[in-house]
Simulated assay, not measured.
Amino acid sequence: MSSEKKSIGEIRKEFENVQKEAQTEKQQKALDALCLKYAQDGRKGVQVLIERCHKQKEKLQKERERLDVMWQFERQYADCTYICGIDEAGRGPLAGPVVAGAVILPKDCEILYLNDSKQLSAKCREALYDEIMEKAVATGIGMASPARIDEINILQATYEAMREAVRALGVVPDVLLNDAVRIPGLDVPQVPIVKGDAKSVSIAAASILAKVTRDRLMIQYEEVLPGYGFAKNKGYGSADHIAALKQMGATPIHRQSFIKNFV
């Protein structure tokens, strides 16, 4: 059937079938072939489909160029077998644990749109979390409870959670790429990188694991400790959260050292 005999709806369906996940080289070639096949079809609807594909291809190319830059630190340590990114989530909230993530990615791994977790929507973080868990060589999570934070302070509790995350990997990393800090008590060589979650794919992946793990936990806390808005504020000091603290008092997951001004 020639393109002129096909309806625009039928042609659109052809494009949709390969366009949804046109991220691999094979899929992109299939999309390019469709654009070439219908290039001479003068109908506006068909040309709109082709133009949309070209824009998608350009967007994908820019994303791959961005990711290539984010591999710069991993390339510096290419002689290492296991390059581990470390990051944390939850140093600032009034409630809940601090959570650390550790991730070792394969050296040929591509995870599109990987970025600092704070730059991503919750939906995007969830999707990336699943992809990271599927593709990573090893992952680890560590936590320090609110009581532990009160006992040893938030910085030391964060270091403790990070050490736990490294131990949970199941393999011994050759080098740690850390988001800005140097973790005491570890024998592994460390590379602190300021704003590393936006500069290193490994640290970005760790930031997503830590953030999603902690967010899911705070949503669960909302079910057993309603009234503080934990599912929405994730334990941070929003106006509603502070108002609830003043009205109802602290819960077992509040950090006593953080809420002195409110209760």
Rank of each mutant, 00 (worst) to 15 (best):
V18Q: 06
Q19E: 12
E25F: 05
E25A: 11
K26A: 14
A33G: 05
L34Y: 04
A39K: 15
D41A: 10
Q47G: 09
V48S: 12
E63G: 10
V69I: 13
M70I: 08
Q76R: 15
Y77M: 11
D79K: 15
Y82F: 15
G85M: 01
I86Q: 00
I86K: 05
E88T: 01
G90T: 01
P93L: 00
A95W: 02
V99K: 03
G101S: 04
I104E: 00
E110T: 14
Y113S: 13
N115G: 00
D116K: 00
E134Q: 12
A136H: 01
T139E: 00
G142K: 03
P146M: 04
I149P: 08
I152G: 09
Y159R: 01
E160H: 13
E160K: 08
A161H: 09
P184L: 03
P192D: 02
A205T: 01
S207Y: 03
S207F: 06
S207I: 04
A210Y: 00
K211N: 04
T213D: 02
P226R: 08
Y228S: 07
F230G: 08
K232H: 15
K234W: 08
K234I: 10
Y236E: 00
A243M: 04
M248V: 09
T251S: 14
I253H: 10
H254I: 13
I259E: 02
N261M: 00
N261A: 13
V263S: 06
